[in-house]
Write a protein that binds this DNA or RNA. Structure first.
Length: 924
RNA sequence: GCAGGGGUACCCAAGCCUGGCCAAAGGGGCAGGACUGAGGCUCCUGUGGCGUAGAGCCUGCGAGGGUUCAAAUCCCUUCCCCUGCACCA
């Protein structure tokens, strides 16, 4: 880190530059979603944060009173699970901590979840500070019951949601560990089982008298084609009592059954083969089919009882064939490209002979299921003739359930082992609290909010609309995790995403509630009325003051402050929050706040890659933010990270050589100081060109900044500016003092949001007082933007290029170069053409001067395409070239004369055209 | 499967909404040159093909087709890649 970086960070802090108070200016409130504290920040976090930070700094320079607060998230399971792993001595977890630079003897401290929070929040804060973040740290906090003030806020919020009817109770399928008796989230299992969730299946209740044979199936629509049902011959089966009913199920399936349907009583136990040959009734068709045995039936899957549909299920077809029994397939589904019995067809094609060919059978099954589900049309027998399978399935399920022929059930699609080693099952949590995101009115409000917002990039608006539509009720409480207990059902803790919805509002009060002693506030005394008053303006100040033990004046000040800062004006997050947190953020705001406090804008960016690959510790391309700043300094780190990408869903890419490049850029910037204040006073056309380019660039950059296209802005500031500068100095050798001053000042100002330390240092070196961080953003002055001047300079550039090209061709000693503008009649033609007359040739032939060129004039006119935009006049071209004579001579080391085409009979002069001067080389 | 995003020159990447000034910004790499004791610094030049005392022509933005006087940009078809699909940050 550079010495001046420390210096300016200290100066900012001393000046309280980023601790805004409400004033007369317009406010701008920016938030970066608080990061989860189970690890230190890396450069990917850096990118997302910096998009907020740069925008904050930019808006500050645009005269806004900007608030950029920061907090930390600790709610949820992963920290608890990781701490548990440390306690258990899990090698992998220990290695992870070590790789984060945590010394061996400190690792045992991480067996306490609280230590994680303490350790990583300080890491994050340190990293952000060293980056020069313009954060108001007075509002810092972290979540969970460990922060009682925040918990009060969550409790208020959940009581509100309950009163609004948006909090409901229900049951919910989960992955369950029967040994530990707990929900097994992704963080509670070995990585290879991540992402597996319970899948809904249907139990079709075949029966024999009063005894039910519940067949588990993914494809209830095939119940019409059942020829028999299967059980495993050698596994243990039981007759159980479940509620009022008697069921036959495998012994292995009982734990899952109990986890979903409640306690069962085992009446009898027997082997599967003992009941082979019994006949059972199909509850949908009424037909009677036999119970048969097959090896492929897995007793632990579902109920251990399955139905057999040989026409459409390869396993069933093969098992029946192997049994040697006679069977008659029933065709239910018509699929393009297949015959009457797709399963049989596929099995024969693949040459499957035995149930033991599991791999082939799985493949066959997948093929048949996919084809039938998406392209299959049901036949008459199902009563849904002509319907697509994918459409008919949910309808049929509802009918079966309603008639009592079936029940819904859940299974795990593949094996999941808990961290404790136990095989998990699908369970159902009862009394689960849900946020009722399915509520149509709530959805409507959320859509309305989205319609009124701005998005960066605009495309994510659609994503959010569909996310809002797609969200179902959300299980918002957990057990055994960090968080705030649900105030009216304290055995539950509010789940991670559900407690981080409207917390930007908390930033406003955090200044007070996180420093209660300074304001004479007793957190324990806080009631809902405090939040009602501050956030919603409800209640009588005197009463609220008395109830909460807070001075009335203070209370009103807090309310005023809230009204001043809210709503959120901009919130930038990484794209992973697009389907969860961001819609939640919107949902909860529209539920709890009046429209004037709904969020204004959201930005999104992708994932950080390093060297074109996903960051990972094993690949060695994992870059921690803290290390980056240490190694490269704050500004270089900021620039390198920001240069890695832009907004949107595409991933950024941090190339390892960026820091070196940016370091050079900063050096180059510092060298500008030498040019500052020297030069001549006289204004030449090149100066006008340079100034025009500068103002045009300010305009473009400003547009990019408004649009949060920071990388585009950087390219203009850091690269294109310098291209102009080098052309300018090359062109006129001695710069114009004022223009150069303006150029340098503007550059430093525009640099400030990106590399604020260097900008401050430069600003000081230019002899300016005060902080550049709060200076005014440069203004693009239209009066300096001059199309003609820029076109003229382009002509000079092009002409130089053309001569250079000739250099390759024309050998011999060059004595003189003559440059001819086109003959004047061609400008006339062009002029007339640019007015787009109906018949150009007719028009120009009216003019004698042109007419005398006859065919040549017609040819020239015909060559012109229909649109010639504002061509330079002959005089403008001539002046541009003429004034560059000296420059050409310098560049080309040869005498150069610029002449008007009309003044010469040279063939080159005749061929010259507007915009394409003729060039004649005079050799010895 | 559903939903969303993307395929641009040696590489990264802009442009695409609002078609024409786009052989396509900017950066990197590479090649040549200048500077230098030397350079991995800085500066200049070149970097699709062909042609040439230059003002152009051809090919070209995943592939194929279409609309248009005109397409990287609009429409259709197709291939390939990435992300999400939930109780979890």
């Amino acid at each position: 880190m550079e010495a001046y970086e420390r210096k300016w960070q200290q100066k900012w802090e001393e000046a309280g530059l980023f601790e805004p108070e409400p004033d007369k200016r317009k406010k701008f409130f920016i938030t970066f979603p608080y990061p989860y504290q189970n690890g230190p920040p890396h450069i990917g976090h850096g990118f997302t944060f910096l998009r907020n930070e740069v925008f904050a700094r930019y808006k500050r320079m645009r005269g806004f009173n900007v608030l950029l607060p920061q907090a930390w998230h600790a709610t949820g399971g992963p920290i608890v699970a990781s701490a548990l792993k440390i306690r258990e001595g899990d090698e992998k977890q220990i290695k992870t901590l070590k790789s984060l630079g945590i010394p061996e003897d400190e690792i045992k401290k991480f067996s306490d979840p609280e230590y994680w929070i303490k350790y990583f929040t300080s890491k994050w804060k340190k990293a952000f500070k060293s980056l020069g973040a313009s954060v108001d740290w007075r509002r810092e906090f972290f979540t969970t019951h460990l922060n009682p003030a925040y918990s009060k806020f969550i409790e208020w919020q959940y009581r509100k949601l309950r009163d609004l009817g948006y909090l409901v109770k229900g049951s919910h399928p989960v992955v369950w560990c029967p040994k530990e008796k707990k929900v097994v989230g992704d963080h509670d299992r070995p990585d290879e089982y991540a992402g597996i969730v319970p899948e809904e299946v249907v139990l079709i209740k075949f029966s024999r008298g009063k005894i039910i044979f519940p067949c588990v199936t993914f494809r209830p629509e095939t119940v019409y084609g059942v020829t028999n049902i299967w059980i495993n011959p050698d596994s243990e089966y039981c007759e159980i009592e479940i509620g009022e009913e008697k069921w036959i199920v495998s012994a292995a399936s009982i734990p899952e059954l109990e986890a979903q349907k409640g306690k069962v009583k085992i009446v009898k136990k027997f082997a599967g083969k003992d009941i082979e040959g019994l006949e059972v009734k199909n509850p949908v068709t009424g037909s009677v089919v036999p119970v048969l045995t097959a090896e492929f039936v897995k007793p632990e899957f579902g109920t251990g009882v399955v139905m057999s549909v040989p026409a459409h299920a390869p396993y069933d077809y093969i098992a029946l064939k192997e049994s040697g029994l006679e069977f008659k397939m029933i065709s239910l589904i018509q699929v393009e490209g297949y015959g009457e019995f797709p399963a049989a067809e596929v099995c024969e094609r693949m040459g499957i002979k035995s149930q033991k060919e599991v791999e082939k059978l799985e493949k066959a099954t997948k093929e048949v299921y996919t084809a039938e589900f998406h392209k299959g049309i049901l036949k008459d027998i199902t009563g849904k003739k002509g319907m697509k399978v994918s459409d008919a399935k949910p309808v049929l399920v509802e009918e079966f359930v309603k008639s009592g022929a079936a029940e819904k059930y859940y299974v795990l699609p593949s094996e999941v082992l808990c961290r404790c080693g136990e095989r998990c099952i699908a369970g159902i949590i009862k009394d689960q609290w849900f946020l009722k995101y399915s509520d149509p009115e709530w959805k409507r409000l959320a859509h309305e909010c989205i319609d009124g917002m701005s998005f960066f990039p605009e495309e994510i608006r659609r994503n959010l609309h569909s996310a809002v539509d797609w969200l179902r009720d959300w299980a918002c409480t957990h057990k055994g995790e960090l968080g705030t207990p649900l105030p009216f059902d304290r055995e539950w803790v509010v789940e991670s995403l559900s407690d981080s919805t409207i917390y930007p509002a908390y930033y406003i009060v955090a200044k007070y509630l996180q420093n209660p002693e300074r304001y004479g506030i007793n957190i324990e005394r806080l009631k809902d009325s405090f939040f009602d008053f501050v956030f919603l303006g409800e209640g009588d100040p005197a009463e609220v003051s008395a109830e909460n033990g807070i001075e009335k004046e203070l209370l009103e000040e807090i309310r005023k402050e809230f009204v001043y800062w809210y709503p959120v004006d901009f919130r930038n997050s990484a794209k992973d929050l697009l389907n969860n947190h961001l819609p939640f953020f919107i949902f909860h705001h529209v539920a709890l706040f009046p429209e004037s406090f709904w969020p204004k804008a959201i930005g999104v960016n992708g994932w950080m890659m390093v060297g074109g690959e996903k960051m990972s510790k094993s690949k060695g391309n994992f870059i921690l933010l803290e290390e980056a700043v240490e190694k490269w300094g704050a500004d270089v780190t900021r620039l390198s990270i920001l240069f890695s990408g832009s907004m949107g869903l595409d991933d950024m890419n941090f190339e390892p050589e960026f820091p070196e490049r940016m370091k050079r850029k900063i050096k180059q910037l510092f060298r500008l100081v030498e040019l500052y204040g020297s030069g001549r006073d006289e204004i030449r056309p090149v100066d006008r060109w340079f100034r025009s380019r500068l103002h045009r660039r300010i305009k473009t950059v400003t547009e990019f900044m408004e649009n949060t296209s920071f990388r585009d802005a950087m390219e203009r500031i850091l690269f294109e500016s310098f291209n102009d500068l080098s052309w300018y100095t090359r062109r006129c050798r001695e710069a114009n003092r004022e223009v150069m001053k303006e150029f340098i000042e503007s550059l430093v100002l525009m640099l400030s949001p990106f590399a604020p330390h260097a900008a401050e240092e430069l600003w000081e070196k230019l002899g300016k007082s005060g902080f550049v961080s709060i200076e005014n953003w440069p203004e693009a002055k239209e009066e300096f933007i001059d199309d003609v001047v820029e076109k003229q300079e382009e002509l000079v550039v092009k002409t130089l290029e053309d001569i250079r090209e000739l250099k390759k061709i024309v050998k011999g000693e060059w004595k003189e170069i003559r440059i001819y503008t086109s003959r004047s009649w061609k400008y006339r033609v062009l002029e007339i053409a640019s007015e787009k007359p109906e018949n150009l040739v007719k028009e120009i032939m009216k003019i004698d001067e042109i007419k005398k060129h006859g065919t040549e004039a017609v040819k020239f006119a015909q060559k012109l395409t229909d649109r010639i935009e504002k061509p330079l006049s002959m005089e403008a071209e001539f002046q541009a070239l003429k004034s560059a004579e000296g420059f050409f001579e310098r560049e080309l080391g040869c005498q150069v004369r610029v002449l008007k085409g009309d003044e010469s009979d040279s063939e080159k002069a005749m061929r010259a055209e507007p915009g394409k001067p003729g060039i004649e080389i005079i050799t010895e």
